[in-house]
Every structure is written in structure tokens, then in C-alpha cells.
Design a protein around this nucleic acid. Structure first.
Lengths: 203, 203
DNA sequence: ATCAAACTAGACGGATCCGTCTAGGATTGC
DNA sequence: GCAATCCTAGACGGATCCGTCTAGTTTGAT
């Protein structure tokens, strides 16, 4: 080795910890958490097993770190397309458009948090992360709605978002995402008329 | 043994095949498919391993049979509460009420088909069963809507149903189910006004 | 009564899993 | 020069997994 490279080949390689996280994210997300062994992760990351257990105490710790990174990733991806000067309806549309594009590109494999909840039904750490993630989503939707925000309207749009992700996962088609998006836009736009005498729902 | 029982104790025991299916359904549904080993299933069903592989060629075959049974189970549970003489809105409400009750009773652990899709992402047999199940759900919704049924309205209500099941799985609370139900009822009741100039969505 | 089918209990192989461990190599700061 | 830290490769144990197999028992139809 040490041939004739005055410049380091890929400039600099990501740290082994980062390679582990990236590889784990890709494999956990596309193949599932339980179906992905530690040995495959370290092999594809090009990291020794000892290093892996130096950075992460267990597979569980790697799973938690993966989900934490997914939350950050979701936040930045929706904030990247958000234009605070646009109308509420346009901003809602943009949030769903991120999802629709991922579906159309074949890179969407379900909500990572829903997937984790199903693969690890009774894991308390994962349940906490999911609650935190749903708070983040709710806060974002609430911000999009601005002064017209209400807990109930946020909840309605979130259940549409849940439906969009699930239907997209099952059908691999963005049609349901667009349907949910249109519905959410109509809700946010106030083009919805409550039935006469309808009682307010919940708090 | 052979004490003094003129009547057989539990009258008659279900066949071993049925016990396997019942046990597999309970364990696959509550603990997950990949986390449930064959050894646990046969132990809890009280069936020898050889008998299990006599009735089902593989664990995969047992999973398929489990999902087929779940489809039948969903159909009968929604048809059991359906009153064809009631209004469309009431019948939609009844369909979601089945889900809400399961959530409140703590017996709901997600849509079995969604769970299977996530645990076995690329299984073609499961993908086919899911498509068939979604057809069944769509047909039922279409029947509830009667003459007012349209592919788009069915799709909107189905995405709300998807959202209700997913949100219920994640929050273990029936609040989101009721929110989705109310929204679906309003859609079915026609209390929705399309925004001016909105183009028809899809086919 | 006899034969075939369905059942029992459980050992077994081969694979995979997670996590620990040894034995060193490379890089860094002092 | 030297020690600490991070890294490598890979063996290893103990557990669990799926599926096969042996060997013998029960059941039911003819």
C-alpha cells in the first residue's frame, strides 16, 4: 500500500461510528430491525465488531440511535421544503409532497417509528421515542396552521398523515398520499362544513 | 384417569390444526411474527412438532394461513355490526366503532396485514394477501356508501381507516379512531365542500 | 382385525443470532 | 520514546432459530 496518493482517496472517510449509523439506518429501514443482524451491519459498514460495541453498548442502543437520527432527518426534510411566507394550505401540501416524492422514488419503506413499534411491540424506550416524534410532527403541523391551529385540527391532519404513510407502505403508490394531502389541505383551508348540531369532538 | 365424567370434559377439543392456528394468531399478532418461534407456538398449542409440519409445510405457510384467517375475521366482525337498514353515516360509524372498541379493550395491536408487511417487507405472498384484503375493505366501504359510492370517496375513507389503525397502534388510544371516524362520516354525509376550482383528483 | 393416517415426545443438524474476548495494529498527544 | 486510545480481524460461547427425523402410540375406517 501507500502507493502514490498525495491526496487522501475519498478526502476523508466518515468516522466508524457514523458509518455504523448510516449502514444501520439503511438496513434497519429497508430490511427491518429484527431481520438485520449485527454481523451484517458491521460487515457493510467496514467496521470491526469490537469497535461497534465500543460505540454502542448493544444492538438496542444502535436501534435507539437510528431512531433518534430519523427524527432529526424528518424534521430537516420537512423544514427544507417549508416556506413560512406561503399560505397554510401550500405549506401543508409541501409536507405531504416530501412523502409523495419518496414513495415515487421507491425510497419510502414506511414510517421508521411505526415500523419499530411493530417490530418491538413492548419496548418502552421505543415507545418514548415515538411519543416524542409524534409531538414533533404535531408541533410542525401546528406551526403550519398558525393562528388557526387547534388541537383537534392538528390531530385530524396527523391521522391523515398516518394514513398516508401506512397506505403508501402497503400499496407502494403515492395516490393515497395525494388523497390524504388534498383532504388535509381542505381541512386547513376551512372548506369543511360541520354537520348541523354536531358536538365538538374531544378537548 | 377415567374418573367419573359421563360428559367429556371440554366436550371436544379443537383439532390440533385449529389449535395451531389459534395459538399462532394470538402469538403472531401480539408479539410479532419474526419474534415468535415455531417452538413456542407448538408448546402453547400442545401439539407435537411433527404434527405442525404435517399440517403446515413451513412457518411461512402458517403465517399465510394466519393472515387468511384474519381477513375472514375482519369481514365477519364488521358485518356483525353492520345494519343495512341504517343510514350510510351510521354504518360508517359502526365500522370504525369495532376498531375503537378493540383499542379500548386493549386487544388491538395494529392491523395484522400492516404488521406483516413491515415484518416481511419483500414477501410476495404477503403482498398479494394485502392487496386482496384492501380490496375487501374497499368493497365493504363501497357497499356502505351505496349509490353514492365512488372510487375516490372509497379511497378517502380507506386512508382514514389506515390512519386510524396506525395512530391507534402507536398511541394505544381510541381518540384518533374517533377523529378519523367523524371525518369519514362527514365525507360520507356529503358535508364537505370542495374548494373553488379544485380539479378532480385522480380517476 | 387390520391398515393407514394422524398423533406424541424429543433428539438432532446447520444456521444465525448477540455479545465477549483475545491479540494485536494504527494514530495521537505529550 | 511512550502511553493511551481507537481501531482491526476473527474466534468463541450460549442461545435460539427452522426444519428433519426416529420411534412409538392413538385413532378411525373398512
Amino acid at each position: 500500500m501507500d502507493l502514490d496518493s498525495p491526496v487522501e482517496l475519498p478526502v476523508t472517510r466518515p468516522t466508524s461510528r457514523q458509518r455504523l449509523l448510516d449502514t444501520a439506518a439503511r438496513l434497519f429501514y429497508t430490511r427491518g430491525i429484527n431481520s438485520t443482524g449485527i454481523d451484517v451491519v458491521i460487515a457493510e459498514a467496514g467496521v470491526a465488531k469490537g469497535s461497534m460495541y465500543h460505540h454502542f453498548a448493544s444492538k438496542q442502543a444502535l436501534v435507539i440511535a437510528y431512531l433518534q437520527a430519523q427524527k432529526i432527518g424528518w424534521q430537516s426534510s420537512v423544514e427544507a421544503v417549508d416556506q413560512p411566507t406561503s399560505s397554510t394550505v401550500e405549506r401543508i401540501e409541501a409536507m405531504f409532497a416530501v412523502l409523495a416524492e419518496a414513495v415515487d422514488h421507491g425510497t419510502f419503506h414506511g414510517c421508521p417509528f411505526t415500523n419499530a413499534a411493530i417490530e418491538r411491540p413492548d419496548d418502552p424506550e421505543i415507545r418514548e421515542l415515538i411519543a416524542a416524534y409524534r409531538c414533533t410532527v404535531g408541533d410542525h403541523i401546528s406551526a403550519l396552521l398558525g393562528v388557526h391551529s387547534s388541537p383537534n385540527l392538528v390531530a385530524r391532519i396527523m391521522v391523515l398523515y398516518d394514513g398516508a404513510t401506512t397506505a403508501a407502505k402497503l400499496t407502494r403508490n403515492s395516490r393515497e398520499v395525494r388523497i390524504a394531502s388534498q383532504l388535509a389541505q381542505q381541512l386547513a383551508g376551512g372548506t369543511f362544513i360541520k354537520p348541523v348540531g354536531a358536538a365538538p369532538l374531544g378537548a
